[in-house]
């Protein structure tokens, strides 16, 4: 990966150069923004249902219809045009759906300035050019949306952690919107906001927004503080680097603990022993200090029971637009139809 450039800056550069291709944003949840001659035509993210999910989960299109359009149009990047040419959707519906899905995914894809990003030329999305969005407007709107949820409840961890409703409401009387009710009913303690959005066919951002509102009301458990950035993994080694030095001297002292069994044997031997113990740590401290930086802070890395960092436990699949993704989506749509 090249040195970190914020995804939104990379997007602006590519747009200013009038390039055609895809901005791949890594991290969790990450996403992909598609440009055609400098204008955004589509964006997708694992946390935001795409056009296909929105249309099929809502029942607007039969899974079969969507699948057929995907099969016929994916190769030449014209799935969107096929859908309204064949009369399955009105142009207005298609445009509104694509606009909604694009802004939705952009919030997740462009929301984290520290996410790794890369621009690949000449990658096009199978949906085709249904809309053209100014990349600047997309970035501005993503930023505004981030601020909007932060103002409600500043806890970004909520966007990715499993949704756990509190078992007892913190107030006597609770009023909620229909959308909030739907989320609460489907939150089983395992599903993340992204899972809920996919399941219900609702926009990812709308889901996150309602969840933050409910968290602010105390209806949803705050995620464990370790979750958002894996501070367990990232910070502990450095913080403990110092602690290790201080703890180390005690270890040799402890290893000389066999001196302790001597204690009951007689009164005179114990006397020199404490003196020896007192000296040894001092020497060890001096000796170990210079070599400490070279020692990898392995021991201090993880607390017992701490979760494996996401990067290791399950690296997010590399967004790979193209035939593979089309195939996967078709399989998923087909499986859904069987349910």
């Amino acid at each position: 990966m090249p040195p970190a450039v914020a995804p939104s800056r990379l997007l602006k550069q590519a747009a200013d150069d009038g390039r055609t291709g895809a901005l791949l944003v890594g991290g969790a949840p990450g996403g992909t923004v598609y440009l055609v001659r400098g204008a955004v035509t589509y964006a997708e993210s694992a946390a935001a249902p795409g056009v296909g999910e929105l249309l099929t989960v809502s029942g607007r299109l039969a899974a079969r219809t969507w699948e057929a359009a995907l099969e016929a149009g994916a190769g030449r990047g014209a799935v969107g045009h096929l859908l309204y040419e064949q009369g399955h959707l009105t142009q207005g519906e298609l445009e509104l759906c694509v606009l909604g899905a694009t802004y939705d995914a952009a919030y997740f894809a462009l929301g984290r300035p520290d996410a790794p990003a890369e621009f690949r030329d000449d990658v096009r999305h199978w949906l085709g050019d249904v809309v053209r969005i100014d990349p600047g407007a997309l970035t501005r709107e993503s930023r505004r949306r981030t601020k909007l949820v932060e103002d409600i409840f500043p806890q970004p961890g909520l966007d990715t952690a499993p949704v756990i409703p509190v078992t007892r409401a913190p107030r006597e009387r609770v009023s909620m919107t229909a959308a909030q009710w739907e989320l609460l009913v489907h939150a089983d303690g395992q599903r993340t906001p992204a899972d809920l959005a996919q399941l219900l066919g609702r926009a990812g951002y709308a889901t996150v927004l309602e969840l933050r509102r409910m968290a602010a009301l105390g209806l949803i458990e705050a995620p464990p503080p370790a979750t958002p950035d894996n501070p367990d993994f990232v910070r502990l080694p450095r913080a403990h680097g110092e602690a290790v030095n201080r703890v180390r001297p005690a270890v040799p002292a402890a290893s000389e603990a066999p001196t302790v069994p001597i204690v009951p044997s007689g009164a005179s031997p114990p006397a020199p022993a404490p003196a020896a113990v007192a000296v040894v740590p001092a020497q060890v401290t001096v000796a170990s200090a210079p070599e400490a930086p070279a020692r990898p802070p392995k021991l201090a890395r993880r607390k017992p029971g701490a979760r494996l960092p996401k990067e290791i436990a399950a690296e997010p699949p590399e967004p790979h637009p193209g035939a593979d993704e089309v195939l996967l989506k078709r399989i998923r749509t087909a499986l859904r139809a069987l349910r």
Partner: peptide
């Protein structure tokens, strides 16, 4: 209000 079958609030 613009009603769509898919999720949108327009």
């Amino acid at each position: 209000l613009v009603r769509t079958d898919f999720d949108s609030r327009l």
